[in-house]
Design a protein around this nucleic acid. Structure first.
Lengths: 116, 116
DNA sequence: TTATTATATGAATAAGTGTTCATATAATAT
DNA sequence: ATATTATATGAACACTTATTCATATAATAA
């Protein structure tokens, strides 16, 4: 059952965990945020946009793949508030939404010991 | 095509993006890392473990659900190096792998303006 | 208006994933 | 050795999701 020799400590931790647990809505939002940036094709777009804002044509050129696939991914990123869009004539120009995004990427890279 | 009035700037950004793009393997690893923490049930476990190490029984008590489901999620987190396990007699005691995990959660919370 | 260019999107399909159920392994107790 | 307790895991099913293809919208040019 639970007689693990640390029964009391673990039981207290479990009790504290229940008290301090974020509500379902918060957990869902957090999960959604991470899910948004957890696809190689979308990360590629984010790394591309670190070089500066770009329109869809140039994003597609930078990351490869079809315009349609890129547009679909841009929508996911936009609706997840990871990037923002502005119209400029015939073009839509995309850019990273805020500094948190860059910081998240940096932290994850650090966790994995990679240099980006 | 690409005559967006910013053609030159965007073209240069695209070129830089291609040069500085992480390789596929890095992108895949990064995506996998985010994917690992992008499920409410797994985030719940991580928030629970912020209160201290716990065995499976108490984690299950803290987060709810069945022992089997929790065990499956613990495996995903463990294989993703987000948590670590050590045996203590009959029990397996889990804890957060390193400080990066806590920092990631904090950053994401900040991004969403929540208090955890 | 008609044509063209840039981007977005709906539907379909294929691949991935979380939970449940039943069962297996591993440690300990009798 | 057998039973019990703690945890892990394989298979199946339901659900989600990324890409492709075809088409739609929106801005501009002729």
């Amino acid at each position: 059952m639970k007689d693990c020799g640390h029964e009391e400590e673990h039981a207290y931790s479990a009790a504290r965990a229940k008290l301090n647990m974020p509500n379902e809505e918060t957990l869902f939002s957090l999960a959604a945020a991470f899910k948004t940036i957890s696809e190689p094709s979308r990360l590629k777009i984010l790394f591309a946009l670190r070089q500066g804002e770009m329109c869809v044509y140039h994003i597609t050129e930078a990351v490869g793949g079809t315009q349609s696939a890129v547009s679909h991914q841009l929508r996911v990123l936009r609706e997840g508030h990871i990037i923002k869009a502005r119209r400029d004539g015939q073009n839509i120009v995309y850019s990273l939404a805020d500094a948190h995004v860059v910081a998240l990427l940096a932290l994850a890279c650090e966790h994995l010991n990679c240099n980006f």
